[in-house]
């Protein structure tokens, strides 16, 4: 059997990390293809239920990445995200999701190479943790959701 390839969902801010990931592309820096980017205006927009949804949809790891502290395009969105994360962490713990599956990063629009590093290291870390199957039992329920949605 080939090595387990984790599925990583990245929630990124449009101004810093999304642009930074564009720069990774413009600079032709290669990184693992396991990651899928969801573009949001700001990390402050990230409702942490989105992270739960990602796990429920089969993600093995999640990256949340935005502007460096003090660099938020909207002044303070990244601080809101950071505060929310602190609270959310204990909820994850309570639910039995390994906190190491979620990686917080600050990647600016100028840090193309850093984005590749972040992705690669998260992919490696999550690969070592193995697949996330905590939600497997709930899969039928999730499938129901899907049918309703597709309509």
């Amino acid at each position: 059997m080939s090595e387990f390839e984790p599925k990583i969902i990245a929630f990124v801010c449009n101004w810093c990390t999304y642009a930074g990931a564009d720069l990774t592309g413009t600079s032709r820096i290669k990184y693992a293809s396991n990651v899928r980017i969801v573009r949001l205006p700001c990390t402050g927009r990230i409702d942490f239920m989105l992270l739960m949804k990602a796990f429920s949809r089969g993600a093995d790891g999640v990256i949340v990445s935005g502007c460096h502290p003090n660099d938020c395009h909207y002044t303070s969105g990244n601080f809101h995200a950071r505060r929310r994360w602190i609270v959310f962490k204990s909820l994850l713990d309570f639910m039995g999701i390994d906190v190491r599956r979620i990686h917080f990063a600050w990647v600016s629009a100028a840090e193309g190479a850093k984005w590749a590093e972040v992705v690669n290291s998260v992919v490696n870390d999550v690969r070592a943790l193995g697949p996330y199957d905590g939600y497997k039992n709930l899969a039928p329920i999730a499938a129901d959701w899907r049918i309703q949605d597709a309509g």
Binding site: E5, A21, G25, T26, R28, Y31, S33, R36, R39
Partner: peptide, 24 residues
């Protein structure tokens, strides 16, 4: 869907890359 900067330019030619493009 960002198939160039976030996909074709940063990954090798492979099934997985096409799969990612389909996902996006």
């Amino acid at each position: 869907a960002n198939l160039r900067e976030h996909c074709s330019w940063v990954h090798e030619k492979s099934e997985a890359t096409t799969r990612k493009a389909v996902d996006l």
